[in-house]
Nucleic acid binder design. Sequence first.
DNA 1: GATGAATGAGTATTCATTCAT
DNA 2: AATGAATGAATACTCATTCAT
Lengths: 180, 180, 180, 180
Amino acid sequence: MDKREHLIEIATNLFSERGFENTPLSAICETANVSKGLIFHHFKSKNGLLREIFMKTTKLIVEINTTKSENLSPNEHLTELLESFFVQLKADKLFFQFNLNVIVQPSTREVLNDLIKERSSFILRETKTIFDKIDAPNSLVKSHMFIAELDGIALSYLSIYEDFPLKQIKEHIIKKYSKQ
Amino acid sequence: MDKREHLIEIATNLFSERGFENTPLSAICETANVSKGLIFHHFKSKNGLLREIFMKTTKLIVEINTTKSENLSPNEHLTELLESFFVQLKADKLFFQFNLNVIVQPSTREVLNDLIKERSSFILRETKTIFDKIDAPNSLVKSHMFIAELDGIALSYLSIYEDFPLKQIKEHIIKKYSKQ
Amino acid sequence: MDKREHLIEIATNLFSERGFENTPLSAICETANVSKGLIFHHFKSKNGLLREIFMKTTKLIVEINTTKSENLSPNEHLTELLESFFVQLKADKLFFQFNLNVIVQPSTREVLNDLIKERSSFILRETKTIFDKIDAPNSLVKSHMFIAELDGIALSYLSIYEDFPLKQIKEHIIKKYSKQ
Amino acid sequence: MDKREHLIEIATNLFSERGFENTPLSAICETANVSKGLIFHHFKSKNGLLREIFMKTTKLIVEINTTKSENLSPNEHLTELLESFFVQLKADKLFFQFNLNVIVQPSTREVLNDLIKERSSFILRETKTIFDKIDAPNSLVKSHMFIAELDGIALSYLSIYEDFPLKQIKEHIIKKYSKQ
DNA sequence: GATGAATGAGTATTCATTCAT
DNA sequence: AATGAATGAATACTCATTCAT
């Protein structure tokens, strides 16, 4: 059992549940049954731990997007992206919330600035590659709209509307992008 | 000079700039040139102050939406809403960020739970009134999509993409909703 | 309705229930439905209020003891004192506790120093008058023992032993002093 | 030099002198020359420190009472108890006062509730064991009277009568219990 | 790699008291 | 007599971080 990996896992869960600022390292240590010193030994600081977690997530996102089969039509590709987005959104509510969290909070935002830029420009690039095949002249605007819609749906679903009609929204948006 | 009102104003600014959790009451007091005790005299607690600010914003939103002239076609109404949204988004960046912030952060989210519900259901109701006139059977889904798109745009613009093409997005979305 | 008297009554109750140090003036004001300023107007300070309450109690004790019929034998007198002590102890638990409280607590003890001396020497004097008739040479020691026993019983009953056998103790001690 | 033990010692002294509620942690830290954080590291809270001190005292009381030689007559045993009580009362005035204090004060009383019960039932049990040998049918009442008398004497001596005739009271009570 | 004692700066909150009205 | 805005000093407690072992 790799304690380093174990710590990352537990910290991710706690940060997701309570938010980064409201999760003292002591809580992580107690849950993981390790000493405080060990966190600093492995990650230098609490911010270091946060960056490590954020980087891991980005790596995951990149992997998912690059291993996707390339012999799909652009519309099929969009549909596939949407499908996996809605599956994940439902499965990993807390984790999505954590990502929203650290991006929106000024203090964490500052710590993660470079990593957020890196991740978001990757996502924009990937999306734009698809829209280039559909409507090249407007691909940038359409990509931004596509991303904003998904973020907005996540926000509404996770933090605003308890009875958000996720299923119907999914059908609506998939229908919209499958024939564009 | 009403110190109570003054405190709300200054706190709103500071919370927007630094985030709620990262703004100590001492900072507010120093800026407003009052004692710490006064905040507790007027607002009971830091959370009390937060609620007061959030309620004031809701009141503003309600006012704006209810005084709107009623002799517009639904599409004109949407256009008008969009116009004012983009104007405000650009003018009050920090304030939008603050609202995103407290909604997404678990700790503040909990404190404001009832107020967030109240505000968000008001917005949904108002939006649905418009879409009822355009496409009654799908008005709920379309309202949710409309709101999610705007929230997503705000999120992308404020917290993710430094070079977000706000102007073109605005044109794109106004065009879309003006002929729906 | 005399607000001054009303305040004393409410403060006595609250001090008895929570202890003097743990009863903020704000609690008294809320319960009495008056402003904070009024307490300072009437009593100068929180300590002033405490002294007022303590003095009132002493006055009561003095009254009870001086109006007592004087045509009793010393042993009958002791029995009568004991009877009224046990009746009061059972009826006014909280109030006894409050008196113990302020006497034992160093901070309040200091504030009430002169009043405590005054009251306790009155009680000793009265008790000694009785024991002088029973056993003059040892009257001082016996008076002190008598007072200490009652205080000790109150202490045990109120603060130490939940199942203190008050009734049997009463019988025991009355029997003891009725034939001394 | 064990800082934990050192802290307990210093806190005991200060609590005895000023009372628990009137001793800020800062006073303890300054006297002990340690940081505030250390108290919370070792005792979790101010109340935790109080409990630790109270427990230590109970342990001491238990030790003293259980190591007592068992080949004494019950009356000799009582005399011995009384002798050591009066010696300690004179030597450790402040410490006795502290114990009275925390038992009588509602707030500390609540914190120590279980520990007070534990200690007082131990004392009652031990006392009753002696009186069982003297007057079995009335042993409970006599034990309670014995304890109440000692508590009452402590109270009078420490908090009420400046010129309490401790020596004569001691002789009086020892004489009384040596021939019972 | 791993522990845990120790630090110190920071933070919300309490509360008696004052004073203008 | 009565109010309540305003103060400011005090206080328990939190928490990331350091460091000797």
